[in-house]
Design a protein around this nucleic acid. Sequence first.
DNA 1: ACATTAATTGTGT
DNA 2: ACACAATTAATGT
Length: 209
Amino acid sequence: MDLHKIFPELHSPELLASIQEKATKKSFKAGDIIIDFGSYIKFTPLLLKGVIKIVREDKDGHELFMYYLNPGDTCAVSLTCCLSEQKSEIRAIAEDDVELLAIPANLMDSWMFSHLDWKNFIMNTYRKRFDELLKTIDEIAFNKMDVRLKNYLKKKALVTGKNSITSTHQEIANDLSSSREVISRLLKQLEKKGGIKLGRNTIDVSELK
DNA sequence: ACATTAATTGTGT
DNA sequence: ACACAATTAATGT
């Protein structure tokens, strides 16, 4: 297994050996829920393959999209949960078929002290996620829904590496905490002027600027 | 191939 | 936001 290829920041031989020994490989199919609200997290995922969507739930039970995890990422939120044994504030859904390494929570902690590269890795993913979050906060605070939608489409296309998106208007509305009708109407505007093509369950985004 | 049904999308209020 | 119409895809016969 070439862990080092996917996680360039992890290089010390002892750490890599520990990971090999202690981590368990798990796989999920597209749509599976990997971590759910309120569940205690007893491991942290190192994502090997596929895309994971991280979603927050507001008080009325509405979902709000936060960010994607790509191969080479780990879930920053789950790090905090692990360390303090808190319930999960988030839901993690497999966007594609996913393979990940599950690191037991207690090891996360001790590796912080014993392996410098591990510590740096954790710190860096924190920093990256924090930047991401700032961006989405800005977007929600300052952008109208049509801009958010356009960004959402772009990001989703980028992350999945495809130029067509397979999801329903309803699902998009859930991610953006809007209503399906609003999304449908905005999408149709975009189809006229913005260079996307709509079909049932698919949105072709290859022409999107 | 055709009819039936379910799911997704469109529109008016 | 809601109700309903229209369209498209999936399924059974």
